[in-house]
Design a protein around this nucleic acid. Structure first.
Length: 413
RNA sequence: CGGGGUGUAGUGAAUCGGUAUCACGCUUCGUUCGGGACGAAGAGACAGGCGGUCCAAUUCCGCCCACCCCGACCA
């Protein structure tokens, strides 16, 4: 993509109110644009990162579930059935805007904050028999929660993207088996995104859902909102809210701040009972369906990654989620740059070409801010040196490599 | 939802009773070109909204709205 045609550009002056690093850098670099509190547009760069993350999530989730897409809007009745119409305090209601509508409808709908209340009657409709179970479905979709305090850029939004998977089982044991498999798949995802080594599963409160623990995937992050107690002797991690007695003073516990990147819940029969979802067993008897739910906030993950991977100059994207692999900068050498640009495109290497008429310093500053893994500079200096100048975002020094080495080099970063 | 703070040009700020100034960005011309270049000439704001006080309000007062921060909450 040519930067001059992107429709969006980095800002020289950081946004005033941005306190959180992810909000500051993502806004300044032109990844997101705030529309209101906790609601953002994903600009071309931001959308690319979001889609990379969601495609990685999708690839791995396809191993344990089938993708579908439920509506963002749902009938109030579903939420009345589960009692959550009155128990969830962040529900958004939608209704006809009567000022301009010809239909004087009083109907009210819910902008879904999550989909247990939608997926359960849906799956019930198609899977009445033990022969149908277990079954699991997932979607990647926009959710709405009227957070009393939207904050910290993409970390806590009122409209956000989430992958949510729901599984349905004939027994607790079967749920347990699937649950453990889901944990593994989650780690595959976090590994591919670039945070595998820094992420742990922590026991956490089950909230409304269950008296048992839920499991949070927490990634180490200095600015994280959670505190994790990791028991070195057992390898078990606890969210501060459920930490064992004495963990504060016990030297076997490592305490660190972290950011939640995923959360999975054993739901039991909470929702299936509400909707009367029982399956027919071999002997013809009716038995309750056991359920689990598994979430990853894909837009939130963008914010977490920026909090985790940045320096004083800007973002440092992990390779697999970077908006582009190569950030191409030309200094007065448009024709040469265009050749390299086309060559990269022909080899399916994602490249952002800063083809704007600007001084070199500004282009370098924007390249650092945007944070693609490889910066390539085309200038009289690089041409005199007989090659292409490359610099990793996380390195200080650039180096010249030959045209022949170039593609191989980039594919190996 | 409690507490605190802020709303002035696209962005960031100054003015704090006499209808607004600067920087960045934008337009035009010229000169530059390896870490946020320089000169010249331009365009762009009824100062968040409503009401009040006053001869006069961006400035003082009240209400509303919006945004940010701390806390509570976070299925």
């Amino acid at each position: 993509m040519k930067m001059s045609k992107m429709g969006v550009r980095p800002e020289k002056i950081a946004p005033k109110d941005a306190e959180a690093i992810n909000q500051k850098y993502l806004t300044q670099a032109g990844f997101i644009h705030q529309e209101m509190a906790g609601v953002y547009t994903f600009l071309p760069l931001g959308l690319r990162v979001l889609e990379k993350i969601e495609n990685i999530v999708r690839k791995h989730m396809d191993k344990i579930g089938s993708e579908l897409l439920m509506p963002a809007l749902s009938p109030k009745e579903y939420w009345q059935t589960t009692g959550r119409l009155s128990s969830i305090d962040v529900l958004f209601k939608a209704c006809a805007a009567n000022e301009v509508s010809l239909m004087k409808s009083d109907a009210e709908y819910i902008l879904n904050p999550t989909h247990e209340d939608v997926v359960t009657p849906l799956i019930k409709n198609y899977n009445p028999s033990y022969k149908d179970l277990p079954v699991s479905v997932y979607q990647i979709q926009t959710k709405f929660r009227n957070e009393p305090r939207a904050k910290s850029g993409l970390l806590r939004c009122r409209e956000f993207r989430m992958k949510d998977l729901y599984s349905f089982h004939t027994s607790e044991e079967d749920l347990k088996t699937f649950y453990e498999e889901a944990k593994k798949v989650y780690f595959d995802i976090f590994k591919e995104i670039g945070i595998g080594a820094d992420t742990v599963i922590a026991l956490a409160s089950g909230g409304d859902f269950t008296k048992d623990y839920s499991h949070e995937f927490q990634t180490r992050c200095e600015n994280g909102e959670d505190t994790i107690y990791l028991d070195r002797t057992t390898g078990v991690a606890y969210n501060k809210e459920v930490k064992p007695e004495g963990a504060d003073t016990n030297p076997n516990f490592e305490v660190f701040t972290a950011s939640e990147v995923g959360n999975i819940f054993p739901l039991g029969t909470k929702f299936t009972k509400a909707f009367g979802y029982e399956y027919t067993d071999k002997d013809g008897s009716k038995k309750p369906v056991i359920m689990g739910s598994y979430g990853i906030g894909t837009s939130r993950l963008i914010g977490v990654l920026v909090e985790k991977f940045h320096d004083e100059k800007g973002i440092i994207w992990p390779r697999n989620v970077a908006p582009f692999t190569v950030h191409l900068v030309d200094i007065q050498k448009k024709e040469e740059a265009e050749k390299i640009y086309n060559m990269l495109l022909e080899n399916n290497i994602e490249v952002l070409w800063d083809d704007r008429e600007m001084s070199p310093g500004e282009k370098f500053a924007d390249a650092d801010l945007i944070g693609c893994p490889v910066r390539v500079v085309v200038s009289s200096r690089s041409m005199d040196a007989g090659g292409v100048e490359v610099k990793m975002r996380h390195d200080k020094e650039s180096k010249i490599i030959t045209q022949d080495e170039f593609l191989g080099y980039i594919n190996n970063v």
